[in-house]
Amino acid sequence: MHELALTHEIVAIVCQAAGDRRVHRVTLEVGERSCATPESIAFCFDVIARGTCAEGARLDICRTDGDDLMVTTMEIEEAA
């Protein structure tokens, strides 16, 4: 259930870095010991991203064996 709060934070991190540009893809690393469930984050992401710069963005989640939960990269539209 805390994935909801985590996903809000993920979208906030992405949108802050993206400024006004549209986000096409977000890559996350979810550690085995991070206490977060990738499926739940993926479930929350589409809903929370709606109406933000990350609406419709694709979320790629990679499991790692650490305990971190990180937004590693994003793809944004090129500046006009």
Partner: peptide, 17 residues
């Protein structure tokens, strides 16, 4: 395919907390 730029973030999700 819209031309996109890859941005490195490497930001911990709980960094703000």
């Amino acid at each position: 395919h819209t031309p996109t730029t890859l941005v490195e973030l490497q930001t911990r999700v709980l960094a703000k907390n």
